[in-house]
């Protein structure tokens, strides 16, 4: 029983981080109809940045974290400005360019950081006894609360601020938004940066628990894509619910069925969604 509870807790912790990563993809898809296939590589880079900032340069871990996310944000803005912007309206080229970019970044990571898994230092040590049922690592508990904090700030940013309003306006109708004075190029650029930063945030929060390697990037991207399709393209709520579902199912599946096939469960979910509810849990049916 306590074993099952522990796997569930694991699923929820990973699920929340899944949600952050997926919102990064969903924001960009919603606003500019671009799927960023280099999402997983940005996550990996963030993990390595955070590792090298704190281990090689001696920056305190809690400062290395936002610093790495900010670096990824800048990389995202650079990507949008140089490679993505010229492809607006041409879905095919944006898919090709971000895929090629993912391969380039993956190889660059291999060249710069080497093939070895790296793990930034834990922020806290020890474990906590949860309701007298089981012990749970403090690092995971802290990661969970930081992720909840990140989630709440994204929701605030998108639902309550002017920037969020412009994002939603552009997702609904780009031309109308431009007509009423939204600078859509600037919003695109910032939204792409934000999407990248969320990949970075997920990478920074999760890398002390699961070390990063250059070859691990495609499964990160894939997880985010599965959550986005499951939740419904462009739906933030969908990302949270989808992220939790995937996190829990993967952890239970890995524990009770097979660890090797952890990623297969996600793909099965993807196919089931496409067969029975292709617009996702919270997506709009009109397509």
């Amino acid at each position: 029983m306590s074993e099952l509870l522990m796997y569930l807790t694991n699923g929820i912790v990973i699920g929340v981080i899944n949600a952050i990563s997926a919102i990064g993809v969903s924001l960009i898809v919603g606003i500019m109809k671009v799927v960023n296939f280099a999402h997983g590589e940005l996550y990996i880079f963030a993990g390595y940045f955070s590792y090298h900032l704190s281990v090689s340069l001696g920056v305190p871990p809690l400062l290395a974290m936002p610093l790495s996310i900010f670096l990824i944000f800048l990389i995202g803005i650079g990507m949008e400005r140089t490679l993505i912007r010229p492809t607006y309206g041409d879905e095919m080229y944006s898919l090709i360019i971000t895929f090629v970019l993912s391969i380039v970044l993956q190889n660059a990571a291999l060249l710069i950081f080497g093939p070895y898994p790296q793990k930034p230092p834990n922020w806290v040590t020890g474990a906590m006894n949860i309701f007298g049922l089981y012990h749970y690592g403090n690092q995971r508990i802290l990661s969970f609360f930081i992720s909840i904090g990140v989630l709440l700030s994204i929701f605030y940013l998108i639902k309550r601020t002017w920037f969020g309003k412009s994002i939603r306006a552009i997702s609904q109708d780009r031309e109308m938004a431009a007509l009423v004075g939204v600078d859509h190029l600037k919003v695109n650029m910032l939204a792409f940066g934000l999407g990248a930063a969320l990949a970075g945030a997920a990478g920074v929060v999760l890398s002390p628990i699961f070390p990063v390697t250059p070859s691990g990037s495609s499964s990160v991207s894939l997880n985010a894509f599965i959550v986005v399709v499951l939740g419904g393209m462009g739906s933030l709520k969908g990302c949270v619910v989808g992220g939790l579902i995937l996190g829990i199912l993967e952890n239970l599946g890995a524990a009770y069925i097979s660890t090797m096939y952890r990623h297969i469960f996600g793909f099965i979910i993807l196919i089931l969604v496409l067969v029975f509810r292709p617009w996702g849990l919270f997506g709009q049916k009109t397509q």
């Binding site: 799927v35 894939l222 393209m233």
Partner: peptide
């Protein structure tokens, strides 16, 4: 977009 995502998976 769905084709690209699913084929990657």
């Amino acid at each position: 977009i769905y084709l690209s995502l699913t084929t990657l998976g």
